[in-house]
Design a protein around this nucleic acid. Structure first.
Lengths: 254, 254
DNA sequence: CGTTCCATTGAGATGTGTCAATTCAAGTGG
DNA sequence: CCACTTGAATTGACACATCTCAATGGAACG
């Protein structure tokens, strides 16, 4: 399929150039600007660090938590990616989100004290674990932190509502384009390339997330490639025309 | 269409039997068990009351807030119903939620300090307004309240994710059945009839919310009626078989 | 070096959208 | 009080986007 396109030549050099070390403190962490510490004073960050547990890496396929587990902690992705999903009454998986470094997992457990979804690593990953009751207590004494916690939950809300808009109105083309655009943006936010990245999830997972059949995802990707908007080679994606991609996501042609 | 069914005879007596008065304090409010005061001590509730503003009623069609308005407050529905919606890039409306008494609107503004959606009354309604910064400050001193605020946001998250599941996987029949079941449950929670209620929204709004054409909603309602699951007469709904309705929502027949 | 998973592509089936006609109810103004 | 208008709802016929089924090839992995 991609034989008519120039080779993409992804190499191992495309791996995160400055992946955070497991021992790194919050104040030194490259993700601090996306994470809870944003806008916090140094001494406040130090207090936060006391309740942050840096866990060992998770391997691909490992669960961070499962549906109905007791809700005790939230997790910040440090490296790698996760999918959040539930099992429907009819036994199928439904993916509700993908999580990139700097994004927070686990808020869905707040209201019932049990996680309402499962979180699974799509590739080797590492995370920071924060006990939620400790975070609650600390945020009661640090207004900036409390505000930030609210903000992070609010972001999760915003993401969900964005997805709802997608699923409600948009065509297959628009949904896939929007996901690619979102991933591109999220990569850029962390200082990675917005135009060249590797999808951590399968076509089936993309389809599941977007409410499409795996085959439809594949077809849309081929179609976007035929329109010279992206170049696809398996999981390697090159965005050749960001503007066109944005337009495709919004339903405009060219 | 409904001529073959027994008349429903809805009367004005079906109006809320104990609608809260605008002057009612939180401790006396019939919705307290659903609202922020849940699990709070009497003296704590009294503090909460100081930051709750009880607004005058809104008439049908009035906006509580609009997309991009400055986020200052959250709102608890006391009576009536609201829809939350956004305008897509292509200029269409996309409804992201319906809000019944005891439910909270406005959390979507937290992350950006601007509401990301608009809220409009579907019928005459009244609300309580709570300044969010005051709520933040107070919740820092009352752990139960802080926990409760988190819970309420978490509920919003859970609702959104539920909708995502719907939109991603389910058929038109399942979506409409699930919405009816949800409304039935939410009515019951407030002490109203779970089997007989009046829809506050139009078919077009239901369709918009569920990602369906108005005509499809209409057809599904007729279909559910033909299967003796519900009786429809315009906006008046009688649930004749709750179990069948639940099954229809989950994709099981009979 | 099988085995398994993933991705692609084609052909046909189908659920839902679109378009259109009709009815009904609620206002509105002469 | 009666046209007249307007919006909501229902129903049918047809179109079309996407799903399902099926076959194939390649990559990853034990």
């Amino acid at each position: 399929m991609s034989s008519s396109n120039p080779p993409l030549n992804f190499t191992s050099a495309d791996a995160p150039p400055c992946a955070p070390h497991a021992e790194l403190s919050c104040s030194q962490c490259g993700l601090a600007a996306l994470c809870l510490p944003l806008a916090m004073a140094d001494d406040e960050i130090e207090q936060l660090e006391h309740i942050v547990q840096r866990s060992r890496p998770l391997r691909k396929g490992a669960h961070l938590y499962r549906e109905r587990d007791a809700f005790t902690a939230i997790y910040v992705v440090r490296a790698g990616t996760f999918k959040g999903y539930r099992i429907t009454d009819s036994g199928e998986e439904q993916i509700a989100g993908f999580y990139y470094p700097g994004e927070i997992l686990g808020f869905d457990g707040i209201s019932t004290n049990k996680y309402t979804s499962s979180a699974k690593a799509l590739e080797s990953a590492s995370i920071c674990e924060i006990q939620f009751d400790a975070l609650s207590r600390l945020s009661a004494t640090i207004p900036t932190l409390q505000q930030r916690v609210f903000q992070m939950i609010g972001q999760e809300l915003a993401r969900d509502q964005q997805l709802i808009m997608q699923l409600g109105k948009n065509t297959a083309d628009q949904r896939v384009a929007a996901l690619l655009f979102s991933i591109s943006t999220r990569n850029a936010r962390r200082g990675f390339s917005a135009t060249r990245f590797i999808l951590p999830m399968t076509r089936a997972e993309i389809g599941n997330y977007l409410g499409l059949a795996m085959e439809s995802v594949s077809r849309v990707l081929s179609h976007l490639q035929a329109r010279d908007i992206i170049a696809v080679e398996g999981k390697d994606i090159v965005v050749q025309d960001v503007d066109k991609l944005r337009n495709a996501a919004n339903g405009c042609f060219e």
